[in-house]
Design a protein around this nucleic acid. Structure first.
Lengths: 358, 358
DNA sequence: TTGTACGCGTTATCAC
DNA sequence: GTGATAACGCGTACAA
């Protein structure tokens, strides 16, 4: 049923190899031959069989992007950006949702589907430094985020501490003294929560404000619902605040909802800033100030690094850690619409190779 | 380098066929043999080579989901649901972003990537009834939406007219008389915009309200930004309104932003309802009333139909059109939080086969 | 219950 | 420039 190279060759009166040459753009072909083959291809409606090509070339042209869930706007936008970047390079992306569960995240690294693609861009949320062994894999891998520093792979991260500090200082610069933080993970040493909380404390310190545990709102999952719940709880507990730094935009938008429900004016009584600068932030009421962590640059860089690894033949390049530039985007929720402040810029650093690619 | 079935067979002292049997769960294998093979697999770290299997079985285990863009929350949530449904059935999803451009949508149906997967779930936004010929394809296809009725494929759609009518009546039942609609596509005969606008007019008629062209706000793209712009334009033009039906939630959230900017109270002065019931709707300020079109059911049904087609051997089943149940979810923006109204239920209908699968 | 042998559609290595 | 032909790794008649 399916028409093969063999059929085309027969039709065009050439050998199968010549058809292959035409299909793959091999330059040294007589124009007349090429035309004949192309005509045969059109007439027969021939299509390359990807499975056969993949088997032969040991490459699939696919890469995997593993994220917690697409319903979270940050990851949806990240996926969009990754797909676009890969597309521009002629590659196709397969998305894997982990639900941030240990089991699924482990599966991503070693499961059945691992072998469908040539490489992996992985944003882990459940696995941490204790699982670093799992990341010693024999395929091209780029890790997003900062949960597993030290893994033998390229990393693309965010300027978390510096950006969170800048966000906190932004609130302090408005004269706010009781700055709450929402989304903290108590006792956690790594990951975005820990780093952003660290930045928050650094910001308080630099602004000469005391750190008050009462101002720290825990929220395991960074969803809108948890943001709303955490905010509500703090308000119900009578914690006095005049500003909130939410560790991501979903939390912030949830918190905004809770503030509204408590008839608290934003930014009049409480200033609010989030983190991620998702598209929603621009259109909430009031528009949400946020930290733009350089999402597009993250996606672009991750794809670039991964494709480099996939293309690398033999020479084990040193692992790299790339930190995109981030900036504070001031909008109505902190009363400074249009204000954009650059955070200390990111950069690239080389990490010694402690492992080679198989 | 890569360990193959052959290696495993040698190691276990059996034939390659036996290894294959074990890997594929063939039941009639002596327990001892099976154990020996499994031990060999573990020791050697053997993994099935998907490319080889795909070539042999003429199947990839992948399906494509083609949507405009993942940045749009509705499609992100749809993708989430489709991936989950496919996953539960052991299938993997590859997402294709079309940017709603004719070129990319055409490519999805016939381009290079078409042959990477076993079937396609396609939500077209640029192609319409005139392009119906493009949909006569020789691979399993499920079409989402109502732009190309009549195409020889299974359809999963929404109860657009009935749901839009119900949304309009919901606003009318609050005593609103000047109900604007946002997101209309002038002159368009098919697609969500046309159908929902038709439902809007039907709702007005049933409520005994006149149709006023001034109340119709055009918006080609259904983004937040266009919703905000359209709403602003209407308000600046001095159009008198006391309610707004936005044809999707992105438009509604944008409109909400514009209303707020114009210091118009929602729902006090203007009641607002959207369409899609995306997750954001629950957490906007005020929370947005919306039409839940049965997104999960759509995703689940689409996957189910597609896998049926893929699995179908020979017998060309009639094409089906499935319409999930939809309902109105009342929240603060129409002043009736918690109110849920069922819209006339959907259903399944069989369509004559005017084409067989190749 | 297990083994042998062949073919899936390509690409790649040589000759010619 | 072009043509045979051997892999690539797996599934599956068919045989044993």
């Amino acid at each position: 049923m399916a028409v093969t190279m063999h059929d085309v060759a027969q039709r065009a009166g050439v050998s199968i190899k010549t058809v292959s040459n035409v299909v793959n753009g091999y330059p040294y072909i007589r124009a007349a031959t090429k035309e004949r083959v192309e005509a045969a291809i059109d007439e027969l409606g021939y299509r390359v069989n990807m499975s056969a090509r993949n088997l032969r070339t040991r490459r699939t042209g696919l890469i995997t992007l593993a994220v917690p869930e697409l319903s979270l706007p940050y990851f949806a936008e990240l996926a969009d950006a990754v797909i676009s970047a890969a597309d521009a390079a002629g590659w196709t992306v397969l998305i894997e949702q982990t639900s941030a569960s240990r089991e699924r995240e482990t599966e991503v690294l070693s499961g059945r589907r691992r072998h469908l693609t040539d490489g992996l861009i992985f944003s882990p949320l459940a696995l941490g430094p204790d699982d670093i062994g799992l990341f010693s894999v024999d395929f091209p891998l780029v890790i997003l985020g900062e949960r597993v520093f030290g893994a033998p792979a390229d990393h693309v991260t965010m300027n978390n501490v510096a950006a969170a500090k800048a966000a906190t200082l932004h609130l302090a610069s408005l004269g706010r003294r009781r700055i709450a933080v929402i989304g903290a993970h108590e006792g956690e040493q790594v990951g975005s929560a820990a780093l952003r909380t660290e930045g928050y404390r650094a910001g308080l310190a630099e602004a000469g404000l005391p750190f008050d545990p009462e101002l720290v709102g825990e929220a395991g999952l960074w969803h809108r619902s948890t943001g709303a719940e955490t905010m509500s709880r703090m308000l119900d507990d009578g914690v006095e605040i005049d500003a909130v730094f939410a560790l991501n935009d979903a939390l912030a938008l949830g918190a905004l909802h809770a503030l509204h429900a408590h008839r608290i004016d934003v930014p009049g009584q409480v200033a609010l800033i989030g983190f991620d600068d998702v598209d929603d932030a621009k259109y909430s009421v009031p528009a949400l100030s946020s930290v733009d962590p350089g999402r597009d640059q993250i996606a672009h860089t991750a794809v670039e690094l991964l494709l480099e690894r996939i293309g690398a033949s033999g020479d084990p390049a040193p692992f790299r850690r790339v930190v995109p530039d981030s900036r504070i985007v001031g909008r109505e929720s902190t009363g400074e619409p249009g204000d954009v402040v650059d955070v200390q810029p990111g950069g690239t650093e080389q990490v010694a190779v402690d492992m080679t690619w198989a």
